[in-house]
Design a protein around this nucleic acid. Structure first.
Lengths: 142, 142
DNA sequence: ATAGTCCTTCCACCTACTGGAAGGTCAAGG
DNA sequence: CCTTGACCTTCCAGTAGGTGGAAGGACTAT
């Protein structure tokens, strides 16, 4: 099967499929003319990867999940552990973003938003006390 | 002021400060010996940037905010517009992650997590409806 | 003179792709 | 036979926002 076909059936862009081959997630064979020739199992793997990625699993997690996918003797505990730690990370991120959202919302609400320069948002950003502590409790990153 | 000093007072790593110079967010002068020489205004800018970044604003937003910071005739409306659109993006992200979290949590809860291979998480990831494929016919699929 | 710390530049790496250029292959139509 | 267009190939560069490290110059103290 050619890459265009596999792309269509798996829902992954051809570029992404080549990238996945590059990092060793799939190993399609080659024809005489140099074209990749995907087996049905490769298609399955790629669809599996697409779903796993859409659930937010990282590439290395996907690699592990793929090996578990191919292991009919796997323990569901191994799969669950990966999903659980991923879930914990997602929930952690949600908390950080919620704190961020609350801070931003507060600033936005307090800013009158007219043509005068006076602005609580700018006041928050403006450094008042350098080298010292206080003012902002916690910082999060996106 | 040397970069180490500025780093300490602004809370930004020296590497980051050099990077910010690279992309034109600050323009410290140079001494005879090639060392960067930061003015107090540069320190203020860097602290401003650090706070804006910690609120999740992107670099280009920071660049705009910085120009508004230096413009004493700015309209608070301009600042508010940037913060509002950023807030909207954050809230959008939260919603996406919450949907993801719900899906993952459901899968994790339904997975018994023992030493048997049977696993609802894997079932979710496993492609079932691809053209020309059957669902694991006893030992053919990986 | 030498040790230790600070500073410099440059290059590579991180995630997970994505875009584009330059060029080979293949099937159909005239 | 030739051309057109779709498809395929590789390789290079770029994304966001830095981080790590190497190689080497500069400063300070003893």
């Amino acid at each position: 099967m050619n890459i265009g076909n596999v792309s269509e059936q798996s829902g992954l862009p051809a570029k992404t499929i080549r990238y996945y081959e590059d990092i060793g997630l799939v190993q399609p064979s080659r024809r005489e003319n140099g074209y990749r020739d995907f087996a049905v199992q490769d298609l399955h793997k790629l669809a599996f990867l697409g779903r796993a990625r859409s659930l937010g699993f990282g590439i290395e997690e996907c690699r592990t999940l793929l090996s578990l996918y191919e292991d009919r003797e796997r323990s569901s505990a191994d799969v669950k552990a990966i999903a659980q730690s991923h879930l914990a990370r997602v929930d952690q991120k949600i908390e950080e973003l919620q704190a961020l959202s609350a801070t931003l919302r507060d600033l936005v609400v307090r800013c009158h938003g007219d043509d005068r320069p006076d602005c609580p948002i700018m006041d928050d950003l403006t450094p008042s006390d350098l080298a010292g502590t206080r003012k902002h409790p916690a910082g999060t990153t996106l």
